[in-house]
């Protein structure tokens, strides 16, 4: 089985809107934000951008047709790993996205220094940033392959998060993102695993912006 394709995007694709970033910390982006606080909000945004090392690891798989099980040698994507919302797909794109480990370290450092506001903001920013990254790549995939299913991450509906480890180890085969066998928690923390199902043939991913 092939190892995953790697895509390193420009940093600007991971920039969330301020609206979403602040929504994550239950705050409305409005004129009422005091100057000093807005300054921290912007500083953390900038810090997040500086520290992020966004990468997408991705691979297309045909969906296993017979003998449901986990015959990984066939390169097919097993039925049991396909959530019901993606049922009927003839192929699956599996991808993992990450901002890298520097963000985690910085959040940890902020907490160690009792800079809870900064830590909270950076955590929120990074979560939205990963989502911006996923959305961007999602757009690329759909531009290539058409409508597809919704983008789905383990931990929702009927695909337990504990499958993360299997998806990373057996399918994407990368070690830059590690999924804990017991909990499925990813390291670096600001990482996600996503699946999109397709009914049609796939074309090429245009890697340019």
């Amino acid at each position: 089985m092939k190892t995953a394709n790697i895509l390193i995007p420009d940093k600007n694709v991971i920039m969330p809107t301020k609206k979403r970033y602040l929504f994550r910390v239950a705050m409305k982006h409005s004129t009422a934000i005091p100057k000093a606080l807005n300054s921290v909000i912007n500083r953390i945004y900038k810090k997040g951008l500086e520290l992020s090392e966004p990468v997408i690891y991705w691979q297309d798989f045909p969906v296993e047709i017979e003998n449901p099980g986990n015959d990984k040698k066939t390169s097919a994507f097993p039925i049991y790993l396909i959530p019901s919302r993606l049922e009927g797909s003839s192929s699956i794109t599996l991808f993992a996205s990450t901002l890298g480990s520097k963000i985690d370290q910085q959040i940890k450092q902020f907490i160690g220094e009792e800079k809870i506001l900064e830590a909270t903001l950076l955590d929120a920013w990074a979560s939205e940033s990963v989502e911006a990254l996923n959305k961007w790549f999602d757009g690329k995939l759909r531009a290539r392959s058409g409508k597809g299913t919704m983008r789905f991450s383990p931990g929702y509906d009927d695909l337990p998060i504990t499958y993360n480890n299997e998806l990373m180890t057996d399918f994407l085969k990368i070690n830059a993102i590690v999924a804990d066998k017991e909990t499925g928690i990813l390291t670096p923390k600001k990482s996600t695993i996503c699946l999109i199902g397709w009914l049609n043939e796939r074309g090429e991913i245009n890697e340019s912006r």
């Binding site: 940093k11 600007n12 920039m15 301020k18 609206k19 982006h29 912007n42 945004y45 900038k46 951008l49």
Partner: peptide, 8 residues
């Protein structure tokens, strides 16, 4: 990127 942070 830094410039765009302030657009909103």
């Amino acid at each position: 990127e830094e410039f765009a942070i302030h657009v909103e």
